[in-house]
Simulated assay, not measured.
Amino acid sequence: MNTPFEINAEGDRIVYVKTVEVADLPREVREQAGDLSLLYAVHDADGQQLALVADRKLAFNLAREHDFSPVAVH
């Protein structure tokens, strides 16, 4: 079975949460970000972005609500 998600020893699907500079995003996204300078992206193991949210806690909660185990990327 081929999956874009890593699976840890406990069998949890892992996604990665990282900060993203709003200045590095496309104009449409920058406009929607308002006065925020950072957003939080949730990615699968292949690097595909699954979500982009304004709050770190929200990113982790969103991942858990969808049965993923979030891991912070530094």
Rank of each mutant, 00 (worst) to 15 (best):
V17S: 02
F60H: 11
G34V: 04
N8Y: 07
L38F: 14
Y40Q: 02
Q48F: 14
D67K: 15
Q49V: 03
F68Y: 14
F68R: 00
K18V: 05
G34I: 02
A41H: 08
P4V: 00
Q48N: 15
Q49L: 09
G47R: 02
L36M: 10
E6V: 00
A45V: 08
D67T: 04
D55R: 05
L58S: 02
R27H: 14
I14F: 06
A51P: 09
R64V: 09
K57G: 11
A59R: 03
A51Y: 04
D46K: 03
Q48G: 06
V73C: 05
A33M: 10
D12N: 07
H74K: 07
Q49N: 08
T3D: 13
D35I: 03
A45M: 11
H43R: 09
Y40E: 03
Q48M: 11
D12T: 04
R27D: 13
Y16N: 06
K18Y: 15
G34Y: 14
L36A: 07
K57T: 09
L62H: 03
N2Q: 14
P70Q: 00
G47A: 03
E21D: 07
H74R: 10
L25T: 01
R56M: 06
D67L: 15
R56K: 09
F5S: 02
R64N: 03
Q49R: 13
P4I: 04
Q49T: 08
A59H: 08
D35M: 03
R64P: 02
L36P: 03
V71D: 05
D46E: 13
L50P: 01
A41V: 05
L25Y: 15
R30T: 03
I14H: 02
G47S: 04
R13D: 05
L50G: 01
L36V: 01
L25P: 12
F60P: 04
D24H: 11
L25M: 13
H43Q: 09
A63R: 00
V29A: 08
E10D: 02
Q49S: 12
R27G: 05
A59V: 05
A45T: 10
T19N: 10
V53I: 01
D12G: 07
A54Q: 09
Q32L: 12
G11M: 08
D35N: 11
P70W: 02
D24E: 08
E6R: 07
V15F: 05
D55F: 09
D24F: 14
D55Q: 04
L36H: 09
N61V: 01
Q49W: 15
D44E: 03
V15N: 05
Y40F: 15
P4N: 00
D67Y: 15
L38W: 12
H43W: 12
Q48D: 12
V29L: 13
E28F: 14
S69F: 15
V29C: 10
K57E: 14
A33D: 11
A41L: 08
L62V: 00
S69L: 10
H74T: 07
I14T: 04
A45C: 12
